[in-house]
């Protein structure tokens, strides 16, 4: 920028050796101060809250004064059925939704990369719910899953007795999970499609020459080579599932009773009730659950990557 820089001898090597003024080429061209603004924002609005949550989780807190109460919040969290249930529901919800996205996503991707007619349109139709407001989807399916709603009416046409999708405590969580799968399956499928399209075509040709059928091609080529896609789908949907709040809140508010409460909705309810310390303890539990699952899983899934 300054005129003096024009006269300094340009360093043509990419080497990191220092120039005459003692500032390396790297520091001059790719200065660390580019990091300053994002680093400050990230530190203040993400790292400080995250680190301090480990303190406030042990306090009775009104946002002004925090009184240290030791493990009381955690004891309460694990003692009260309404709270600790949220932890189990979170795990069940995350495992069901991410499992279903893998099990349904890969076959759908194979279908939509085959010679089927109208596959571009079908891909768009499948993907569109991903972009729609979660609250809007929640409200719509609350209506569709009503006792006398469309889903039960259609089941009735086939002579199947409808169920109380959202009003039955034994079903509510699974019904919401079903809608989550409906909304998210398009993304999982597209990730698999991207993975399948990246497989070199020669593999399939060679397999055909060797007389492998479609099923054999699926198990020997597509399945093993979709491993990175599977890792992405599992990690994305598991983390998303563990943190999910919007859909559950829009459909059941955690009810009936506490039948579909998850950690994220417990955090919100305790926050609303003014139990800030307890709410933050819930956050710490969620943090521990997410990292305890995501880190080993990430390591396990990306460990043996198949090179193309």
């Amino acid at each position: 920028m300054s005129a003096s820089q024009v006269r300094t001898p340009p360093v043509l090597r990419t080497a990191t050796s220092s120039s005459r003024r003692g500032v390396s080429y790297r520091d001059r061209v790719y200065p660390l101060w580019f990091y300053v603004v994002p680093a400050i924002l990230y530190l203040v609005l993400f790292i400080v809250p995250t680190v301090s949550s480990f303190y406030f989780a042990f306090t009775r807190w009104d946002l002004r004064e925090a009184e240290w109460i030791g493990w009381d919040n955690f004891a309460r969290f694990f003692a009260e059925p309404s709270l600790v249930q949220g932890l189990w529901h979170t795990l069940v919800y995350a495992v069901i939704t991410s499992g279903a996205k893998v099990v349904l996503g890969l076959p759908l991707a194979v279908l939509l990369t085959s010679g089927i007619i109208g596959r571009t349109f079908l891909r768009s139709v499948l993907f569109f719910p991903v972009l729609v407001s979660t609250i809007g989807v929640g409200i719509t399916f609350t209506a569709l899953m009503d006792d006398e709603g469309l889903i039960n009416s259609v089941l009735g046409l086939f002579g199947i007795d409808g169920v109380l999708w959202l009003a039955d405590p034994a079903l509510a969580l699974y019904s919401v999970a079903l809608v989550d799968i409906w909304k998210g399956i398009g993304l999982a499928t597209l990730i698999y499609i991207a993975g399948i399209l990246a497989i070199p075509h020669e593999y399939f040709e060679a397999a055909r020459v060797d007389g492998a059928g479609r099923l054999q091609q699926f198990f020997t080529i597509i399945l093993p080579l979709s491993r990175p896609a599977t890792a992405t789908v599992i990690i994305l949907s598991l983390i998303g599932g563990l943190r999910s709040f919007d859909l559950i809140w829009a459909m059941t508010r955690g009810g009936p009773g506490f039948a579909s409460d998850v950690i994220a909705s417990v955090i919100y309810k305790q926050y609303q009730a003014g139990f800030y310390g307890l709410s933050t303890a819930g956050n710490v539990v969620l943090f521990l659950v997410v990292t305890a699952i995501a880190l080993p899983l990430n390591w396990f899934l990306t460990r043996r990557e198949v090179d193309l």
Partner: peptide
């Protein structure tokens, strides 16, 4: 930043 759920009240 991708993995950790933000701590709301803090």
């Amino acid at each position: 930043g991708l993995i950790i759920p933000p701590a709301v009240v803090p």
